Simulated assay, not measured.
Amino acid sequence: MTDAERPIILVVDDAPDALRFLTDTLEGQGYGWRIARDGEAALASAQAELPDLILMDAVMPGMGGFEATRRLKADPATRAVPVIFMTGLTDTDNVVEGLAAGGVDYVTKPIAVAELLARLRVHLGNARIQRGAHAALDASNRSLVALDAGGRILWTTPRSAEILVRHFAAGPGDALPPALAGQLSRLAEGEARVRHEFDDGRVEFAAVAGQVGERHFRVTELREGAEQRLLASRHGLTEREAEVLLWISRGKANREISEILGISPRTVNKHLEQIFEKMGIENRASAAAAAVKTLSH
Results as ranks from 00 to 15, higher is better:
A15H: 11
A15T: 13
P16Q: 02
A18G: 14
D24V: 14
W33H: 12
R34W: 09
R37G: 07
A41T: 03
L43R: 00
S45I: 07
A46G: 03
E49G: 10
D52R: 02
M56C: 01
D57W: 00
D57M: 00
G62F: 03
R70L: 09
R71F: 12
A80C: 12
I84Q: 12
M86P: 11
V96R: 15
A100H: 13
D105H: 12
V107N: 07
E115A: 11
A118K: 14
L124S: 09
G132A: 11
A135S: 10
S143A: 08
A149N: 14
G150V: 02
G150T: 05
G150P: 08
I153E: 04
W155Q: 15
E162Y: 09
I163M: 10
F168S: 07
G173E: 08
L180A: 06
L187A: 11
G190C: 04
E191P: 05
A192M: 06
A192W: 00
V194C: 10
D199M: 15
D200R: 08
A206K: 06
V208D: 13
G210C: 02
R218F: 03
V219E: 00
E224K: 10
G225M: 01
A232S: 04
H235E: 11
H235Q: 09
G236A: 03
T238H: 01
E239S: 13
A242F: 00
S249I: 01
K252Y: 03
K252T: 06
A253T: 13
E256H: 06
I260P: 01
L261A: 03
P265T: 07
N269W: 09
K270D: 15
E273A: 15
I275D: 02
G280I: 01
G280V: 00
I281P: 07
A287E: 01
